[in-house]
Design a protein around this nucleic acid. Structure first.
Length: 771
DNA sequence: CAGTGAGCGAGCTTCCGCTTGACTT
């Protein structure tokens, strides 16, 4: 009989593969694929009256994994439980012991937080007993989340709409977005003027130089700005003062999940989910370390190789090795930072996204071990002979680039800071002449809407969510319809300008597009109504500090100084009575808002969430008549829609014109705005076309566009058999079923006979029946 | 694919954190 000797269980199969190489043939390394058990869904999965005793089951997708694990450990001399060194990891080991029937005699708990040969061998030499306190902290976390999620969600089904959800993390994420929107709605933009001057001077060598500077004061009105220019007209300008301040800048720490998501969005335009899926592929290919981490820590091995690369590529003075402290709230540091597995791999094979993300990780990691940049900030003060006012020019010179040679972190501001012009060499006392001085109106702007990535950043700051859940939570709040990612075209606004040149003052207004948004998170009506309901009735859970508070208690449980079921009991009693009370006394919420009365009939006009979404309604059900309804447009909110805008909606459906002798009608259907022409439907372009504004010409354009698309979609037809181009490549469609075309076949060369064969053979491969 | 805005009302929806595939039209 064969003895497998030692079996090591880790969480991830890619990790298992790597570790097996380090351990040699006495060790077999297998993976649990994360948690293997979870609370049952039936009856909340918790015996509430019995100390909140959890009822765990092996989830369907883990039955096979568990069966394999059982086989693996059956004849093992020793089982090494090597799940992550954090709360969840400890719990995974405990579940493994329970399910696989392991005991402290035949199993050992080991931990390591970097995957290097030394770290793993050291771990094997230092096994420790399972930490039941840590497991209990995890059970408390799990039970609390289930209680909150499974007691709050059903209230929403009853009071607002079926299939909604609420939870400790997602509901706070939605709240952030709703409250930001309200800040934006109530924000009043103000404007002021600031003058920018272009000056010329004659340098010591007789050559002419130019310097650009901003006025030291702002002006609240156009008149004030003009008065200032009048003063400038008669002023003599000279350089009053020059200060040079040295400074340094340090590199950003290596990537965690959250910072990777932010930078990949800002630099590569990837969504949070895209970033994770590209990173997953790099990880599975062995190119980078684990991508779900809150740690900025690098292994000594990684630091050493980074230093080697830096000194050989740039020289010793560019190298400065550092260890970064993780400062994010609730960090558990079970892994390393996200870094290349081998720093000397400058690039990796793969698609463009994989190459670019890898490059970003490589640069960030390398930069983190490089010298500070040394900069010099110069401020030049320009005085005026006839005024205390003046101009200031600022510029920065990089004296030593250091880490900036490879990497510069982006910011969330949309590059609104103009590039500073370089400061020419000048001396105090030099006289200047103005070439042009221009006072420009500047507006204050509201706080920006969240992007997926900046929301993750905020969540991390509040300590809600974990690296493994940032992306899924952001999907959930969009799938529930609470928020939606979208663009706004922005609005034109006038910018007043007054210019002084050649002794003359004249105004020269221009316009700019303000409030343009791309890929931002907008709250939807249902999200707003759910949020307001939860904030009103469950302010404790919705509090931004709720998670931080319970995390403190989880820490006490982990230290062994607090009993977990007692802690949950203290939370649950008041929470549950609030649940009961809310179910009893709270009214149904539709977000109804009265806009006014109809100008002709005097009937009330209001907006609310109806059975099929947000709707405007004229009149109420009575003996004399029925109310009229019209759906709100995608970018309209119950909170901000006006009476006039609501009345406009009743103009739909409407005829916009004729094409080929038939009417074109615009309306809003189940799938959004459409044009109907000869009983065929054509969708309007999201965020581009407004069904209330669309013209006959544009409608024809859309119809032709769609026809052209359909022509490209069809490769061939044989009666009922269609060869089509789809999202996932060419396929055959026959009687509402789809069939794959064998790889390597040119779809345009298929004959009717070929197609029939594929259809016969492919029975079952096509999507039959509906779900 | 594309109207709707009553009724009857079974049975279902849902949480957060660990992990990957399967498979799409």
């Amino acid at each position: 009989m064969e003895m497998s000797g030692n079996v090591v269980i880790v969480e991830s199969p890619a990790k298992a593969k790597t570790i097996e190489k380090f351990l040699g043939k006495d060790f077999k390394v297998v993976s649990s694929f994360g948690h293997i058990r979870d609370l049952a869904k039936k009856n909340i999965g918790i015996d509430i009256d019995n100390g909140f005793n959890p009822r765990y089951i092996i989830t369907d997708d883990k039955k096979k994994v568990v069966a394999e694990l059982k086989k693996s450990v059956k004849d093992a001399a020793a089982v090494w439980l090597a799940s992550d060194e954090d709360r969840e990891g400890e719990a995974i080991s405990w579940h493994l012991m329970e399910v696989l029937g392991l005991s402290p005699e035949n199993s050992k708990r080991i931990v390591f937080h970097e995957i290097t040969k030394e770290a793993i061998q050291k771990a094997i030499q230092n096994p420790r007993p399972l930490n039941m306190n840590l497991v209990n902290a995890q059970q408390a976390r799990r039970v609390l989340d289930r209680l909150v999620g499974f007691e709050l969600s059903p209230i929403l089904w009853k009071k607002i709409q079926p299939a909604l959800s609420a939870g400790r993390v997602q509901s706070v994420a939605v709240r952030l977005i709703v409250e930001r929107e309200r800040e934006i709605i109530s924000f009043k933009s103000e404007s002021s003027f600031r003058a920018s001057g272009e000056f010329t001077f004659t340098g010591e060598d007789g050559s002419e130089g130019t310097i650009t500077a901003e006025s030291s004061s702002r002006f609240t009105t156009e008149k004030d700005a003009e008065a200032f220019l009048m003063v400038c007209k008669d002023a003599l300008f000279s350089i009053d003062d020059i200060t040079v301040k040295p400074g340094t800048r340090s590199p950003a720490p290596p990537f965690t999940t959250s910072t990777l998501q932010q930078e990949a969005y800002r630099k590569l335009g990837l969504s949070v989910a895209q970033t994770m899926s590209v990173a997953q592929r790099l990880y599975e290919a062995g190119k980078i370390t684990y991508m779900r981490t809150d740690s900025t820590n690098l292994s000594q091995l990684a630091i050493n190789t980074a230093v080697k690369v830096i000194t050989s590529e740039f020289g010793e003075k560019y190298s400065k090795s550092r260890q970064y402290k993780t400062k994010s709230k609730g960090a558990q540091e079970a892994h390393e930072a996200i870094r290349p597995t081998y720093m000397d791999n400058r690039e990796v094979p793969g698609n463009a996204q994989e190459k670019r993300l890898y490059d970003l990780i490589w640069k960030r990691t390398l930069a983190s071990q490089m010298s500070n940049a040394e900069i010099e900030r110069t401020t030049i003060t320009i005085g005026m002979s006839n005024s205390k006012s003046g101009f200031i020019a600022q510029g920065e010179v990089v004296r030593f680039d250091g880490f900036l040679k490879v990497y510069r972190e982006s910011t969330d501001t949309n590059g609104e800071h103009a590039e500073e012009a370089p400061i020419p060499p000048v001396k105090p006392g030099i006289e200047l002449n103005y070439r042009k001085i221009c006072a420009t109106e500047k507006y204050t702007t509201a706080a920006p809407r969240y992007t997926e990535a900046s929301l993750v950043k905020k969540m991390e700051e509040l300590g809600i969510g974990r690296p493994s859940t940032y992306a899924p939570v952001i999907s959930t709040i969009q799938n529930r319809g609470y928020v939606s990612r979208g663009d706004r075209p922005g609005e034109k606004r006038r910018i007043r300008m007054v210019e002084l040149s050649s002794g003359k003052i004249r105004s020269c207004d221009k316009s700019e597009i303000a409030g343009k948004e791309k890929s931002k998170l907008f709250p939807q009506d249902i999200g707003i109504v759910v949020n307001d309901f939860l904030v009103e009735n469950f302010s404790e859970i919705l509090d931004y500090h709720f998670t931080a508070g319970v995390e403190e208690q989880f820490d006490l449980i982990a230290e062994g100084s607090l009993d977990w079921s007692g802690m949950i009991g203290k939370f649950y009693a008041p929470f549950h009575s609030k649940v009961e009370n809310t179910l009893e006394v709270s009214e149904r919420k539709t977000g109804e808002r009265l806009l006014g009365s109809h100008p002709e009939t005097g009937e009330p006009v209001f907006v609310k969430i109806g059975r099929y979404g947000p709707v405007a309604q004229i009149g109420e059900t009575s003996e004399t008549g029925k109310p009229r309804f019209a759906s709100l447009l995608k970018n309209q909110l119950i909170e901000t829609i006006t009476l006039d805008e609501a009345l406009e909606l009743f103009r739909l459906p409407r005829v916009v014109g004729t094409h080929e002798g038939s009417d074109m009608t615009v309306g809003i259907g189940k799938f959004g705005p459409y044009i109907r022409h000869e009983n065929k439907f054509y969708s309007l372009k999201k965020d581009v076309d407004d069904p209330l504004e669309i013209t006959e010409q544009r409608a024809i354009e859309l119809i032709e566009e769609k026809r052209e698309g359909d022509r490209n979609k069809t490769i061939n037809t044989f009666g009922e058999i269609l060869v089509l181009n789809g999202r996932y490549g060419p396929y055959i469609s026959f009687k509402k079923s789809n069939y794959k075309i064998p790889k390597g076949t040119d779809p345009s060369s298929l004959t009717e006979e070929d197609c029939k064969k594929i259809i016969e053979k492919g029975s079952g491969s096509g999507k039959k029946g509906k779900k």
